[in-house]
């Protein structure tokens, strides 16, 4: 019983870690008071999703998704089982670059908020909005 449980835990270790990271990111986005901390939480959330997708693409006994003997040798037959699943890699490659773009917009908003209210703390910003 205990052995089976441990087997299940180790067989899906990546999945447990992605859940942990996602919880960390979600908690930071909801509960942290500072806007930059919230943005860090958002990025941790994004990397957790990317970890999940890349874990899906792993294949036991598969090598990198670059065809061997790629230069001109067309006679070689390519077997799908020999290579990792390239599809999650493609989707996540673009997701990372989009995540840096969203990070730029989020930081621009943060800088703009600071220019307006001279603080990055959520409760102080709310207090200053009420004062006006």
């Amino acid at each position: 019983m205990m052995g089976e449980f441990m087997q299940a835990v180790i067989a899906k270790y990546n999945y447990w870690i992605y859940i942990t990271l996602m919880m960390i990111g979600l908690y930071a986005m909801i509960a942290k008071n500072n806007l930059i901390k919230k943005i860090v939480g958002m990025n941790i959330f994004q990397t957790a999703i990317i970890l999940f997708y890349v874990s899906i693409g792993v294949k036991k006994g598969g090598t990198l998704p670059i065809v061997e003997h790629g230069h001109g040798a067309h006679a070689h037959a390519v077997h799908a089982a020999d290579y990792l699943n390239p599809l999650p890699h493609v989707l996540m490659l673009t997701a990372i670059v989009v995540s840096v773009a969203t990070l730029g917009v989020a930081l621009a908003l943060g800088v703009k908020v600071y220019r307006e209210y001279q603080t990055l703390e959520e409760d102080e910003i709310l207090a200053r909005i009420r004062e006006k």
Partner: peptide
Amino acid sequence: MGAVDVAFTE
């Protein structure tokens, strides 16, 4: 984990 393109981007 073998995702070299993703690693390079990251």
